[in-house]
Amino acid sequence: MYFLGVDGGGTKTQAIVVNKEGVVLGEGKSGPANHQLCGMDCALSEIETAINSALSSAHLEKSDISFVQYGLAGADRAEDFRIIRGALETLPFKKWDVVCDTLEGLRLGSDNHTGVVLVCGTGTNAAGRNIHGLEVQTGGFGYLYGDSSGGTHISEDAFRRMIRSYEKREQETVLTKHIPEYLGFNSVEALLDHYLDNNISDIPASLAEIVHQAANSGDQVARNILSDSGHELGLAALSVIKRLNLQGQPKNKIPIVLVGSILQKGRNPFLMNSLKSTIEKDVQHYELIIPTLDPVYGAVMLAMDQCNIDITSSKIEEKLRMGAI
């Protein structure tokens, strides 16, 4: 038996193939697969590219795959699933399922697939599942709909505060030097003129890296940006906990799984401390879990769950970690 996991986000898509023993046989990568951002045709093309690359490196055909699990950003509402399922049905796999990428993250960090998951990568999302199988989602639709975290938001906030600092509406910050340099300009004025003259409104999410660097070097504005982001993530976690009544369930610690590049790789102390302090205003009995594996491995675990393979007792999870690409 062979299993295929596909993780499609706002920046990249990753696919891996494993056998029933949990040995990783192949991997493929491609561009973004969030249909809300790039359209379903583009998303499907990137999904196929990642799958074909993974199968090629594993020396397998599509017909060899026992089950495919897709975990896709943008799979949020019934209408999203209608669009996505219609596209995925065109692929020649007999057995497959699709979930929001939040749930593959939850599976990655929670053995019984219950608790809270916070996603903070290009965008942000929060979701959870209780012991009764009830699932809820908080956020995931952007700033207008209440989200105030994720790489895109952090970058836009930094850009705004750079302008405000340059115009003496906010305290001084090294962002007025580092952001123009990162974007290829020698001053804020040159950057501002170019963006206004060309009606540019898109700020690259990768600018969040500059914010992390500035915060680590002692810049207070950058630290405030990351603290604000952590606070918003904490509020999202509390929302899921309250909506699922997780505090009223058995007295085990509530698992809060943190996934996405900003949480798994960034781990900035100002963001993390703000996240924890916000949660602890209402909840003390919890556990933060930061998986060492990429979210796509959660998709593989869900695929194996679908075929009733116990990955814990058979030490498959250990093999997946050893085989991480």
Results as ranks from 00 to 15, higher is better:
residue 240 V to A: 08
residue 283 V to P: 01
residue 155 S to I: 03
residue 9 G to R: 08
residue 43 A to Y: 06
residue 254 I to P: 01
residue 73 A to G: 15
residue 201 S to M: 12
residue 24 V to F: 02
residue 12 K to C: 09
residue 1 M to H: 07
residue 295 P to F: 04
residue 83 I to E: 12
residue 224 N to A: 13
residue 187 S to F: 10
residue 107 R to H: 11
residue 305 D to Y: 04
residue 78 A to G: 13
residue 176 T to Q: 03
residue 318 E to I: 10
residue 159 F to T: 00
residue 154 I to P: 04
residue 300 V to E: 02
residue 206 S to Q: 13
residue 54 A to G: 11
residue 208 A to P: 09
residue 322 M to K: 15
residue 92 P to I: 03
residue 291 P to S: 11
residue 42 C to F: 13
residue 48 E to Q: 13
residue 122 T to D: 03
residue 91 L to K: 06
residue 31 G to A: 14
residue 237 A to W: 05
residue 267 R to F: 10
residue 324 A to N: 09
residue 169 R to Y: 05
residue 88 L to N: 07
residue 10 G to W: 07
residue 200 I to R: 00
residue 158 A to P: 03
residue 251 K to S: 14
residue 195 Y to H: 09
residue 271 L to A: 15
residue 135 E to N: 11
residue 145 Y to F: 14
residue 33 A to L: 06
residue 225 I to S: 08
residue 263 L to H: 11
residue 157 D to M: 13
residue 77 R to T: 15
residue 211 V to E: 12
residue 29 K to L: 14
residue 189 E to D: 11
residue 324 A to T: 09
residue 146 G to Q: 10
residue 325 I to V: 15
residue 309 I to T: 10
residue 154 I to M: 09
residue 204 P to Y: 00
residue 43 A to V: 13
residue 208 A to F: 10
residue 206 S to F: 06
residue 210 I to F: 02
residue 13 T to F: 04
residue 93 F to V: 02
residue 174 V to E: 10
residue 8 G to K: 09
residue 290 I to V: 15
residue 146 G to L: 07
residue 147 D to F: 06
residue 307 C to G: 00
residue 313 S to E: 14
residue 321 R to T: 13
residue 292 T to G: 15
residue 4 L to S: 03
residue 20 K to E: 05
residue 248 G to A: 12
residue 214 A to C: 15
residue 138 T to P: 01
residue 220 Q to T: 15
residue 278 T to A: 04
residue 169 R to L: 11
residue 42 C to M: 11
residue 226 L to D: 13
residue 138 T to F: 11
residue 102 T to W: 04
residue 101 D to W: 08
residue 18 V to D: 00
residue 291 P to F: 12
residue 153 H to I: 14
residue 310 D to E: 05
residue 97 D to S: 15
residue 285 H to P: 01
residue 17 V to Y: 00
residue 133 G to R: 09
residue 255 P to E: 00
residue 62 K to I: 03
residue 247 Q to R: 10
residue 285 H to K: 11
residue 235 L to G: 08
residue 146 G to V: 12
residue 9 G to T: 12
residue 133 G to N: 10
residue 286 Y to H: 13
residue 251 K to C: 08
residue 261 S to N: 15
residue 283 V to M: 01
residue 97 D to M: 09
residue 92 P to D: 05
residue 91 L to I: 07
residue 35 H to S: 07
